[in-house]
Amino acid sequence: MLGSNHIRVRCEDGVTRMGRIKGKIKKRLWIREGDLLIVVPWDFQDEKCDIIYRYIRPQVEWLQKNNYLSK
């Protein structure tokens, strides 16, 4: 967490980006270290992204069990 609504995110493509938590998610969800997130990189700045969704632990386990995610 970097403060306010910003967070540093390590993406699957190996790039570390600064993520912005959108208002809808900011009010409803707590994002912790180690969470699985869906992010959308910005078109004009590749080092920044928007956080769209956070998976909770049972959802991540289900995705791994059904081979949607690799470990």
Results as ranks from 00 to 15, higher is better:
residue 1 M to H: 04
residue 1 M to Y: 09
residue 2 L to S: 06
residue 3 G to Y: 14
residue 3 G to F: 08
residue 4 S to R: 12
residue 4 S to C: 04
residue 6 H to R: 13
residue 6 H to I: 11
residue 6 H to V: 14
residue 7 I to S: 01
residue 8 R to V: 10
residue 8 R to M: 11
residue 8 R to G: 10
residue 9 V to I: 14
residue 10 R to E: 00
residue 11 C to G: 01
residue 11 C to F: 02
residue 11 C to K: 05
residue 13 D to W: 05
residue 13 D to S: 15
residue 15 V to F: 03
residue 15 V to N: 09
residue 15 V to W: 00
residue 16 T to P: 10
residue 17 R to F: 09
residue 17 R to L: 05
residue 17 R to Y: 03
residue 18 M to G: 11
residue 18 M to S: 14
residue 18 M to R: 08
residue 19 G to M: 00
residue 19 G to Y: 00
residue 19 G to D: 05
residue 19 G to S: 04
residue 19 G to E: 01
residue 21 I to G: 00
residue 21 I to Y: 04
residue 23 G to C: 07
residue 24 K to H: 09
residue 24 K to W: 08
residue 25 I to G: 02
residue 26 K to Q: 10
residue 26 K to P: 06
residue 27 K to I: 14
residue 28 R to Y: 13
residue 28 R to H: 15
residue 29 L to G: 10
residue 29 L to N: 14
residue 30 W to H: 14
residue 30 W to I: 11
residue 31 I to M: 06
residue 32 R to M: 07
residue 33 E to R: 12
residue 34 G to N: 00
residue 34 G to K: 01
residue 34 G to L: 03
residue 34 G to M: 05
residue 35 D to I: 04
residue 35 D to L: 05
residue 35 D to V: 02
residue 36 L to P: 12
residue 37 L to E: 03
residue 37 L to R: 07
residue 38 I to G: 11
residue 38 I to A: 10
residue 38 I to Y: 15
residue 40 V to P: 05
residue 40 V to T: 09
residue 40 V to Q: 08
residue 41 P to D: 00
residue 41 P to S: 09
residue 41 P to V: 06
residue 41 P to Y: 06
residue 43 D to H: 13
residue 43 D to K: 13
residue 45 Q to D: 15
residue 48 K to I: 03
residue 49 C to I: 12
residue 49 C to P: 06
residue 50 D to L: 14
residue 50 D to T: 10
residue 53 Y to H: 13
residue 54 R to G: 07
residue 54 R to C: 09
residue 54 R to F: 14
residue 55 Y to K: 05
residue 56 I to G: 12
residue 57 R to V: 05
residue 57 R to H: 09
residue 57 R to N: 01
residue 59 Q to M: 06
residue 59 Q to G: 13
residue 59 Q to N: 12
residue 60 V to H: 03
residue 60 V to M: 05
residue 60 V to P: 13
residue 60 V to F: 08
residue 61 E to C: 04
residue 61 E to G: 00
residue 61 E to S: 01
residue 62 W to N: 03
residue 62 W to F: 10
residue 63 L to G: 05
residue 64 Q to P: 04
residue 64 Q to E: 08
residue 66 N to Q: 03
residue 66 N to Y: 01
residue 66 N to M: 00
residue 67 N to L: 03
residue 67 N to C: 02
residue 68 Y to W: 15
residue 69 L to E: 07
residue 70 S to R: 13
residue 71 K to A: 13
residue 71 K to W: 11
residue 71 K to M: 09
